[in-house]
Design a protein around this nucleic acid. Structure first.
Lengths: 275, 275
DNA sequence: CGTTGCTTTGACACCGATCAATCCTGGTGG
DNA sequence: CCACCAGGATTGATCGGTGTCAAAGCAACG
């Protein structure tokens, strides 16, 4: 096993000193405290439970486990995955610092997917019952929580679009640009970063085989769009990736677009008829 | 254009008499009022805006329009779809009586997808600002709202699973059984119902071409699993569909499962090592 | 230095897309 | 009443992108 920074006291959760301090957390601009004043932030601070450290490849929670808390990532990366009866996994997302985990469990009271650390990581535990108490007193917090949940819905819709309507190349370009944007939002380089997940994880997210992922990386490299050394990736030609990601050069699709446009015009005519 | 029940006063929204009456709505068990007492329901009633009638093929809202209200479907069916630059659409869901529309717009303040009526339909308009006022006073309502949003997240995760990990046959079986279950929950026959959407819409949801959809319907019919006459569908062999939907008879996949299991065992060993 | 697991690369197969022709249905007009 | 038409649905033939299978390369580690 790869040695971890937790090799002395590994796996299980640990209680941290009481001061969690959203106030001084470098990711508060991306996390729950967005838009809260100092007073509000300190009230939020008070309900944040222990911090938990999760070693690489360990579960933060497992599918079907009862739901009690949301988790905000402090550092490290996670993947969330649903596993079906046959052991195939669909990775539903990758989470990094400032991202909120566990919202899909509110509805059923059990986690709908499993969260696994891709590297040694730390999260803030947010007991949901206590968060709910705060909602009554802090409408700004509630509003922001709704925004976050809603954004999770639109994020997933985008993945549906990706899985449903894009070819392998396009999916991969979208994936890389998405990572790039998220690192930029966190103050890191948007053009040079480490892929925290294995080829297999990328494949299970994009619904491609590891072989396809590998071939795509090679092709992108040969085109001079990226450089890739193991898991270290550099975007060399962002414009090319963006062109791909918006679906340039797919004349087949353009034909379909033409057809769709025609259909639209048809419907407009129909509407006029009816009015 | 097909004549509609609104042919006299078509398209645009209409103000309905003030009494919306969630209390007497046959779908309150599926909708926002779940679990509310009479008093609470009447308070919810008061903020519900006008009812809106939407004729077949008309938009309830369009992508990018500013967000003001959620909508609860009273009758009729809708589809929600994202359309990309090239006119391809990914249908993100089909909504029926009791379903809530528009939650994906809270985050950005604009609708992330378009909602179109598949047939003449009616919705309750729920001004979100007023709903938010109620949240402060009615924690049960807030809790239920969170459940609904969370369920929307898990619903979409299931679609991701469907698009990412299932073959055409399996997707289609899952789709039919899902419709069946939803009609059953609404008190309709789970085995015999009308497909409210065109073949193309089914395809754009399942990410299949109309030809594939058509072939699947034919194949399922020839196998004796369903009968299909135009849009009228009857499930004749539910067990067969369920077997398909859980992914029976995919030995290829079983191999992958075996590999995954092996990997799992590998990781357990690693964990033991570390502990 | 061998083992182990991950990655890369190549050859081939197969599912579902694409293209094309026909059928069916409902609506329209003679 | 029937002929005609348009749009949607079905069916068949073929193509192509990705999965599958297999082998080899490579890096980390004991």
């Amino acid at each position: 096993m790869t040695s971890t920074i937790f090799s002395i006291a590994p796996s299980s959760a640990q209680t941290a000193p009481s001061q969690n301090k959203c106030a001084v957390c470098s990711f508060k601009k991306l996390c729950l405290p967005v838009g809260l004043d100092d007073n509000a932030v300190s009230r939020l601070d008070k309900i944040i439970g222990r911090r938990r450290r999760i070693a690489r490849d360990e579960h933060l929670y497992r599918m079907d486990q009862p739901f009690n808390s949301l988790y905000a990532v402090r550092f490290g990366h996670f993947k969330t995955a649903q596993v079906n009866l046959r052991g195939e996994q669909q990775i539903t997302g990758f989470q990094m610092a400032g991202d909120l985990l566990g919202m899909d469990a509110i509805g059923a009271g059990r986690h709908a997917c499993s969260a696994v650390a891709l590297e040694d990581a730390e999260v803030c535990e947010i007991p949901f019952a206590r968060l709910q108490e705060l909602f009554g007193e802090m409408p700004q917090l509630l509003q922001h929580f709704h925004r976050i949940m809603s954004q999770e819905i639109t994020r997933e819709q985008n993945v549906m679009l990706l899985l449903g309507n894009m070819r392998a190349e396009q999916r991969f370009a979208v994936f890389l640009l998405n990572l790039s944007a998220r690192y930029q939002a966190r103050g890191y380089s948007p053009s040079s970063f480490q892929l925290r997940m294995s080829r297999e994880d990328m494949g299970d997210y994009l619904s491609l085989t590891i072989e396809s992922v590998s071939r795509l990386l090679s092709r992108f490299r040969k085109q001079g769009w990226i450089s890739i050394d193991n898991r270290d990736l550099t975007i060399l030609d962002r414009a090319a990736l963006e062109a791909l990601s918006t679906g340039a050069a797919l004349e087949v699709a353009e034909q379909k677009a033409a057809r769709a446009e025609e259909a639209m015009r048809g419907k407009s005519r129909m509407t006029l008829c009816a009015a």
